[in-house]
Design a protein around this nucleic acid. Structure first.
Length: 202
DNA sequence: AATTAGATGTTCT
DNA sequence: GAACATCTAATTA
């Protein structure tokens, strides 16, 4: 059950919310350290570079960290949060429009023993990959190494494995941890699969 | 069961 | 210094 790698056109579309919803049910793959690990995307959040105070690159803000968000769609944006966790995002839209989708949770597919070892867990339970911080740990992501790499390459990529997600399976709600964003914190830009056991707890 | 403290790089005040 | 797109272990009740 090998999938088709998502192409530039998929990532380059202008509506980041639409891309975020389309990413549900796709397969996220990592070959970091020569070990294949992957999972089905079950939870995402959209961030827009314009008129969204929750976005690191809102209204053209540029720092060393956010620079890669201005790349073309299909680039990885990985950053360190709380000095500990590496969060993985997919950059969307065309160059200079800094939109991105945060991948918050996956359902494990390949390389489960590797992920368990990276997470320093003894056995599998939903804490393996349910949550943006633990997901980055399970797949071996590192902000200094992986931020800015091309998702059409062979280190980190996404595939369509043919699963079709209907609107009725998607729950739409507010994003987590963005209270500081005032009115933009109310945007219903978090999406997850209603029937999945692998979404972040809240 | 619910709340809190602690881990700590980057960015902003 | 403080806050931050978080998570875990310890503490409280």
């Amino acid at each position: 059950m090998s999938g088709l790698k998502l192409n530039r056109e998929f990532y380059s579309r202008q509506d980041v919310v639409k891309v975020a919803k389309d990413l549900l049910g796709k397969k996220l793959c990592s070959a970091v350290d020569g070990k294949l690990t992957s999972g089905l995307i079950t939870e995402v959040e959209a961030y827009s570079g314009r008129n969204d105070k929750a976005c690191h690159a809102n209204n053209g803000k540029r720092t060393n960290r956010t620079e890669v968000m201005y790349n073309q769609g299909g680039t990885a944006y990985v950053y360190l949060i709380y000095g500990i966790y590496h969060l993985f995002n997919v950059v969307t839209n065309r160059s200079d429009l800094a939109d991105a989708v945060l991948i918050r949770a996956i359902e494990p597919i390949n390389g489960v023993p590797v992920m368990v070892a990276r997470r320093k867990m003894k056995e599998v339970d939903k804490r393996l990959t349910s949550g943006p911080g633990v997901l980055g740990q399970a797949l071996g992501f590192d902000a200094r190494v992986h931020s800015g790499i091309d998702l059409l390459g062979d280190l980190i990529w996404l595939e369509d494995i043919g699963s079709r997600i209907g609107e009725s399976q998607i729950v739409e709600t507010t994003r987590i941890g963005v209270e500081y964003a005032e009115e933009d914190a109310l945007k219903p830009w978090r999406f997850y699969l209603k029937d999945s056991n692998w979404v972040s707890k809240y």
